[in-house]
Design a protein around this nucleic acid. Structure first.
Lengths: 176, 176
DNA sequence: CATATATATAGCGGCGATGTATATCGGGGC
DNA sequence: GCCCCGATATACATCGCCGCTATATATATG
């Protein structure tokens, strides 16, 4: 799922500047499953403009850099739907924490416990954010995705709480 | 979590060639939360060799390219543990499927259903792989991680089955 | 003829860090 | 009570590095 497609998707929701597109990843409900940085958003918007997928209008502001407000064009809308109709790239879960847990036997027990505590706190924070009223979903899609995020964080936290002892206090039998 | 650290971690389990390291991501239980491609593994091993973190021995084979078997050095072991003691990078979930569901209202209803069916099948396959006897975990760490993967895929599948109707047949109330 | 073993690189896409400007807001100092 | 400063926010942009994808090479096996 390249950044150009992600930008097109966001622009189907309404016009936005590059800065606002980036903000959406941080504040809206769908922040947990897609992301992009300025370093890829700005070049993507430039290329989309060249290709006629989006149009730009510069809004001058007093004593501030111009806002470059992007709008999706009919061609862009069509290209976006087409790209969703093609086989989607597979999901990617990358978890340095889980990787570290594979090597918990090489780490001081205290540190393992601290890592788990930190990870649980992080998960709780994300869960709280997904449930926060100011991030309440507006559309059926957003509602579905927010619920999905909550379900996954809940089961993750639940598993960690139940099974953490298995790596914090490994038994002899477990080393078989 | 860079590829060099991942390679070091795998080599703490035993010597391996670049090819074998790549295989581990596909066959072992921890394939769901870390990955790396040849295009990053081989350069990483070269650099680790230069830095003295790993050592290589070439095993000549008849009529085949030499196997380059890598072993972790004491310095590599130390560097690996040190890197696990530093703050770990955050998890990344990237899900093009979930992103597409945010725009289900732009897609033909049949296609939305097909996407969900495909995604459920994929999840079931991964779950089956995690439970397969040939991928049975050997250590406490592997057992913990395998169980974690199963818990997440189960809750994911469960959520999709219960809530898919919300985007397949959106109600008027849901569009409020 | 596809698949497996085994190594390697070129090209491209994307992330993280950094840089440039300006405005606003809250708190500390006087 | 007022002023300044630092932190934060708005807004755009680029560079270097990392890592993925695709491709190439070579051989053996089923």
């Amino acid at each position: 799922m390249d950044v150009r497609t992600i930008c097109l998707g966001i622009l189907t929701r309404g016009d936005a500047t590059g800065y606002e597109i980036k903000k959406l990843f941080e504040t809206d409900g769908y922040q947990h499953f897609v992301e992009a940085s300025f370093g890829s958003i700005y070049p993507a918007l430039n290329r989309l403009t060249e290709e006629g997928m989006v149009s730009v209008r510069a809004e001058a502001q007093e004593k501030r850099p111009d806002r470059k407000v992007y709008s999706i064009t009919p061609a862009g809308r069509k290209a976006f739907v087409t790209s969703l109709m093609k086989p989607l790239p597979e999901d990617k879960h990358r978890s340095p924490f889980i990787f570290a847990m594979l090597f918990s036997h090489l780490l001081p027990p205290d540190h393992v416990s601290a890592l788990i505590d930190t990870y649980i706190s992080l998960g709780e924070a994300k869960l709280a954010q997904l449930s926060a009223p100011e991030n309440a979903p507006h559309t059926a899609g957003e509602r579905f995705v927010t619920g999905y995020g909550r379900a996954i964080y809940l089961s993750m936290l639940n598993y960690l709480r139940i099974h953490r002892a298995e790596i914090e206090h490994p038994t002899v039998e477990a080393a078989e």
